[in-house]
Amino acid sequence: MPTVEFSPSIDSRPTYAPLKSHGSAPAIMVADTAGADALLDLMASDSAVTDKAQIVLIAPASDKLARMDLMVKTPVHTTPDLDTAGPLVRQLLSTARMGTQMYLAGSEGMMGALCALATACGLPMDAIQTEHRGTAARRMQCVHCKGITEDVTTDPFECSHCGLTLFVRDHFSRRIGAFQGVCVDAETPGLIPTTQEIRP
């Protein structure tokens, strides 16, 4: 998948520069199947980047996994979904050495969730690189009930927890790893604007 161009936005909205190699520093790399291409590009730019790398692929397509296996010397970990990737990444972080770099690539929701997990584990923000690939779907937190709705592709959308209709803000919390959703018809109950696809 190609890299994604984002519309200009506010300061809290993350931007995603292409991944840059920190050479053979210890590394934790996590990608979904779209993001695997970004890791492959990174490895092609500097083969030393995998020297001390732990690699986790979330639900990878078999061709991506096969290409990755060819590029690296250590086994590639795979998990079926983000929920199962979390404990594995936490385990890798718990034994990580000083100077460990984290490379995340793929959907905003996955990167937001793992970024939040990594900083909560004590990894400094400037040791984490992110590159967006694939879907423009967002991970949204409902400001009212605090529930997270994954893979939101429309604005407005319905909170999967409390059922309020929420509009999609660009305001993003790195601690929570999610954008903020706010009741769209709070002042005029029932008056809901036309649903639109979210653009990157």
Partner: peptide, 17 residues
């Protein structure tokens, strides 16, 4: 504005909206 959402943000992130 929501403290629960904004806690942990830097000055520019917190004022972004």
């Amino acid at each position: 504005w929501s403290l629960d959402f904004d806690v942990g943000m830097n000055f520019f992130e917190w004022h972004a909206p």
